[in-house]
Amino acid sequence: MYQLNFATVAYLLTATALWAGNAIAGRLLVGSISPITLSAVRWGLAALLLLPLGWRVFMPKSPLWKTKKRLLILGLFGVGSYNVLLYLALQTSTAINVTLIGASMPIWMLLIGALFYQVKPSLLQLIGAFVSLLGVGIVLTRGDLAALLSMQMVVGDLLIMLATILWAFYSWMLTRTGPSTERHWPWAEFLLAQITAGLLWTGLFDGFEIALGHAFIVLNWWTISLIVFVAIGPSLIAYRCWGLGVTGAGPTVAAFFANFIPLFTALLSAAMLGEPPQFFHGLAFALIVVGIVISARRRR
């Protein structure tokens, strides 16, 4: 039985705050490192940092070898393709477009749950999704919802849409019971298995980037610091927290917390520019919370 308690809320908020930092870091690294190479370096470093805790997953008797096909899919959806598509989207799309499209995750989560996992959304969940999206719209348009009409679609928007759909599939897969879930594996081994599988896919994608001559990296302290941050915070810590949050609250309710990412991104950007939070930030926060509370209510 899913339950939205204090610990689960803390896990999901931590993950979304770190992913907001990832979006900012990815944008700051544009021009310093190519997008697919960034993803490959990020996950390669994350795997090395996690190896001392999860190395037993590669032992001959590890359940990894019996579930390698499922883990390859998890690695593709949650680590490999999602992050590659995100960094590629940031090359051409604006921050407002990327975060707004990413905020459609609750809708995709409800749709995928209904089509592939026989979990029909309730009326309260649909209402909660609408209220939360309204809060996201207020953040992204700075209180001027009419600005949505002037937005234009580019290639990056389509990429982040695909990434959001794949992440919804990934989140649902995390809740599946069986020998390859976090409930049965030590957390470090399960996460390292996902990262390793995702790194294989990312290395394949990076091979194409290198072959096309588009791969590059400019090494300096600024670039190295940002890469270390995305390898530890948005990778190891955030993925661990998201896994715990999804198994605790369920993928549908957890998806609503993704709407905090654009809010946290706006607040972090404002803090970096020395701008205090505005009234619409508080209004958006309230609407997103209301949407989560409504969606988490059980039908009598």
Results as ranks from 00 to 15, higher is better:
N220W: 08
G80N: 05
R183F: 11
G233C: 06
I160W: 06
P277A: 10
L273W: 07
I261H: 09
V289L: 11
S81T: 09
L226E: 06
G128I: 00
P121N: 03
K69N: 12
S34W: 07
W242S: 08
S225R: 14
G80L: 05
R27V: 03
R42T: 12
I24G: 12
V290Y: 06
F257P: 00
V154W: 02
F280G: 13
F77G: 07
Y117L: 11
L283T: 03
F229M: 15
L74F: 11
P262H: 06
A40L: 15
I288F: 00
A15F: 08
I288N: 05
A95L: 10
S225M: 15
I227Y: 02
P186T: 01
A286C: 02
F264C: 05
I160G: 06
V119K: 14
G44L: 12
S235A: 02
R70N: 13
G80I: 00
V289F: 11
G203E: 09
A211I: 14
M1P: 12
A15M: 07
R299P: 00
T92D: 15
Y117E: 08
V84L: 11
Y2D: 14
P35R: 08
G245D: 08
V218M: 14
G75F: 06
T223E: 13
L283C: 04
W108E: 11
W65K: 13
N259Y: 11
P277F: 04
E275N: 13
S235F: 04
L145V: 10
F58W: 10
A238P: 02
V136A: 12
A20I: 10
A211N: 10
L53Q: 04
A188Q: 08
I227F: 07
G128R: 00
L85A: 08
Q152P: 06
P52E: 05
L115H: 05
F208W: 15
L13P: 00
Y87P: 03
A10E: 12
M59D: 15
L133W: 09
A17W: 09
L244S: 13
G245W: 01
I227T: 07
L134E: 09
R142H: 15
I160L: 10
L71Q: 13
L148Q: 09
L200V: 06
S180T: 04
F280C: 12
I107D: 10
F257M: 02
I237N: 03
R142A: 15
I294G: 09
L72C: 12
L200P: 04
L4H: 05
S104Y: 00
W242G: 08
L50T: 06
L244W: 12
R240N: 11
L134D: 09
A188V: 09
T141H: 07
T247P: 08
F205G: 08
W167E: 00
A168P: 02
K120F: 10
G78Q: 05
A20D: 02
G178C: 01
M161T: 07
W172S: 02
G207L: 09
L145A: 02
A95V: 12
L158N: 07
L159Q: 01
T177F: 10
I210E: 00
K120I: 10
A23M: 14
G291P: 12
L18V: 03
